[in-house]
Amino acid sequence: MQLVIEHLKKNFEKKEVLKDISFTFEQGKIYGLLGRNGAGKTTFFNCLNEDLEVDGGRFYLTDKEKIEDCDIGYVLSTPNVPEFLTGREFLKFFIDINQNRIKDLKSIDEYFELVQINEEDRDRLLKDYSHGMKNKMQMLVNIIMNPQVLLLDEPLTSFDVVVAEEMKNLLRDIKKDHIIIFSTHIMELALDLCDEIVLLNKGVLEYVDKRQKKGEPLKEKIIEALKGE
């Protein structure tokens, strides 16, 4: 499976944020999306998630005629969970309304185990969860939904080092069946976790070859590219 983007354009009035983006993302890989502040990373994700109408171009999955709502999952940097529900109720609701779509349905507790949410926290209101726990729940719901494309907008920044490592391992585990696009400002994280690095610079996507030639440091190469040098 591939996510193919062809001539994608998005303008805000006269400002061209995404200019004619064409790129192919492949299943089984984690893509690190790097870009400077205001480069349009969130706009790019919002377009793929159809939160924003695009001004031109198209994108599609190679094994599907039409992208459906369950095909794309979007994890935002700020966790969003319905605060009046407990963790367990939130998962139950999601499973209830998506029963037909979920493959290999597990018990709710098994799902909690997956992201290591303690037993005593599972029946607490989500409004009393910490930022990191809310983020885990958000990630978990997207994992349960098992979308083919997973968009992650700086999802690890709020986690402590232990949880961040767990989440990285989780992403590595699930990448085989997914296309994961991971936006971050932390270059070390991108280089450590991601299989491919993509730069969003001046409205276009550029692929950066991670395989370094001897004596050519990757970090400097990326920074120079982002600076436009």
Binding site: Y74, N80, P82, N98
Partner: peptide, 8 residues
């Protein structure tokens, strides 16, 4: 506010 961020 939170649920609308989930496409589903």
């Amino acid at each position: 506010h939170s649920m609308l961020t989930y496409r589903i």
